[in-house]
Amino acid sequence: MPYKILDKKELAMNEVWYKVHAPHVAKKVEPGQFVIVRAFENGERIPLTPVEWDREEGWITLITFIRGKTTMRMANELKPGDEILNIAGPLGNPAPMKKYGRVLAIGMITGIVEVFPIAKAWQEFGNDVTTLHVSPNPMVILEEKFEKAVSRHIVEGFDLQPGWGMNEIAGELVKRAVAKVRELLESEHFDMVLTVGPAGAQKAVFNVVKEFGIPMHADLHPIMVDATGMCGACRVTIGGEVKFACIDGPGFDAYKVDWDELIHRIGFYAPMERLAMEHYMKALQGGEQ
């Protein structure tokens, strides 16, 4: 069933925002849940997080980081008035709504998108929420919205250096995140930490938080295909048990996650994802569809 794009903007470098008419999702979605988007006829199914929504007007907003063929094609080919073929959801479990006290919610690069609805809801629920966005400076987004939604919003940005590839960016991201989180935990008291972002960076942050013994909640992003509990692509080991991130998660107790396994599984399709991207770029250059 097609869903109309009501508006679209480039928020920052490679960060694209879509406002989409999807009343079935808008009516039900809760912070922590996600949707599966299939944008094109021969497209893949990708999980995305509704950032904001209006239950009456029936719209949701989505933010994609251009990191593969699908997100690039969406950015290049879809404009307001066009339709996204499929938006299934809401999927996954809502984030727990509890009074934790002082919360540190960390979003790394586009992970901040998923932090937004949860942090906002936690603040509204009576928590004192500090949000931390670790990101290359050109990709910093949602600053104003966070400032309105939570007690304090911190941006830990860094500049991109000429010649940097994904490995260098990831390395700097981890370095910055670890240092900033350590600084915050050493100087202030927190009752709960949340992280969303690349699994390697989440693991590095967890290793710091663990030293302080603070409870930590991690939203995981393994590869998904159907995201309704049918295929098991997203299986993760939590406390020694196999769980499906799509229906048992996406949020888990960070202390129970088998991080190395998760990192291996997320990387498995990287070579084929690059191939798909190259194929698309070649088609663009050749002027083919």
Binding site: N42, G43, E44, T70, V225, M230, G232, T237, D258, F268
Partner: peptide, 28 residues
Amino acid sequence: NLNGIYTANEFLTRVNLMKAYLFPEYDT
């Protein structure tokens, strides 16, 4: 949970529903 181990559902869903045998014309 090692890489390269599929449930039949995942393998067949990729191949049939998502048409992975036509990759990269199909994205999955």
